[in-house]
């Protein structure tokens, strides 16, 4: 993207509506934060009016656009004793705009891609990624659960967004066109934008105080690996459900199930008791404390080491969703400050 000139414009709310209409007309579907049942989550929308950017963060992440809760990998119907293998028609995947994701969510795409294309290219994921355009919205507010800045991110970071909007007030959005995909998304819509003269993006961003030193966390984790008491203490109240993994934008563990002639891939969580159960009956992580340790190690030690990318973007969803108020920020602080 070096060749890209810094392309920053301004767009008003009514013009945004026309942009939405253009995208729909181009055959794209639009996923954006939408309110229903006291929760705001990514759902299909048609107009910006349906979009709710009020909460600091949505309940679930937009990873479902790339890694759905349940997806068919291929099918193998059997007819008259013969089995037919049917691959997914990747070309039939609808191009999608994910609108209104926060910079942390946008940064998470890199982590997902690192996992799914690690040692072999996951065709289905890659096809969905290729068909995805991200229009992020910078954060004007944050809450006690956010910690993007401690992980190298920020409320106005552009990594992962094809276009990043910043609410400048008065119904106007600063629009930074970051990538080629972003440019294509607004092709032919030039008239919807105005020049962004003298707009101070920084002044509109939330202040997210840095909570801990990431450089201290990685070595501390390794040093604490065998400290059983530390992990037990951290995870005493954890009940081992999958809420944190499922709302997390970077968690990508999955299970594969065959049902009625279809091979399905579905979300799984390393927090479940039987996640690592072997066929022999042995379970290397029989205790919740070991599973909790795994969660932190995987995100902050193993992924950086093997895939050169952090497994966490500091969005804070896991802490907000946790039924027993586990707070990853608190736990990371404790790790960073732990005496070896």
């Amino acid at each position: 993207m070096n060749s890209m000139e810094k392309d920053t414009r301004l767009i008003g709310r009514e013009a945004l509506a026309k942009l939405f209409a253009q995208w729909l007309g181009e055959g794209r579907r639009i996923l954006a934060p939408k309110q229903s049942n006291d929760k705001v989550d990514f759902a299909e929308v048609e107009t910006p009016g349906e979009v709710s950017l009020d909460p600091v963060q949505t309940g679930q992440s937009p990873k479902g656009a790339l890694f759905p809760r349940v997806e068919e990998l291929f099918s193998f119907p059997s007819r008259d004793g013969r089995v037919e293998l049917r691959e997914r028609d990747l070309a039939a995947l609808k191009p999608t705009v994910v609108f209104g994701l926060r910079p942390c969510d946008a940064a998470a795409l890199a982590a997902l891609a690192a996992i799914f294309n690690w040692d072999s290219a996951d065709a289905l994921f890659s096809a969905r990624l290729a068909a995805l355009t991200t229009v992020g919205v910078a954060c004007n507010r944050c809450d006690e659960y956010c910690f993007c800045t401690s992980l190298g991110g920020g409320p106005g970071a552009t990594t992962g967004s094809d276009i990043l909007l910043t609410d400048m007030g008065g119904g106007e959005y600063l629009a930074e066109v970051i990538s080629e995909k972003g440019r294509q998304a607004i092709q032919g819509a030039g008239t919807l934008f105005q020049p962004a003269l003298g707009k101070d993006k920084e002044s509109r961003l939330a202040r997210v105080e840095k909570a801990f030193d990431l450089d201290k966390v990685k070595p501390a984790l390794e040093a604490l690996f065998d400290d059983e008491a530390f992990w037990v203490e951290q995870s005493l109240r954890c009940l081992g459900c999958g809420a944190c993994a499922y709302v997390c934008p970077t968690c990508a563990c999955f299970d594969i199930q065959d049902e009625n002639g279809r091979r399905l891939r579905c979300w799984d969580s390393c927090g479940f008791g039987l996640f690592t159960l072997h066929t022999s009956g042995h379970n290397p992580r029989p205790l919740q404390s070991q599973r909790w340790r795994q969660r932190l190690m995987h995100k902050f030690s193993y992924m950086p080491e093997r895939q050169s990318v952090l497994g966490c973007v500091g969005c804070g969803r896991c802490s907000r969703a946790c039924p027993v108020d586990m707070n990853i920020l608190e736990h990371l602080r404790a790790v960073a400050e732990a005496k070896p």
């Binding site: 049942n37 989550d41 809760r69 081992g240 999958g242 809420a243 499922y246 579905c266 008791g273 039924p323």
Partner: peptide, 27 residues
């Protein structure tokens, strides 16, 4: 509509004091 949103995270099961099976039916 409600169940279409269920994630099968089993938080309901984990939170329930009466769900104490070491190996749940779903497992």
């Amino acid at each position: 509509e409600q169940f279409s949103r269920c994630l099968k995270c089993y938080a309901c099961r984990a939170a329930c004091p009466l769900c104490y099976c070491t190996r749940c039916t779903v497992e």
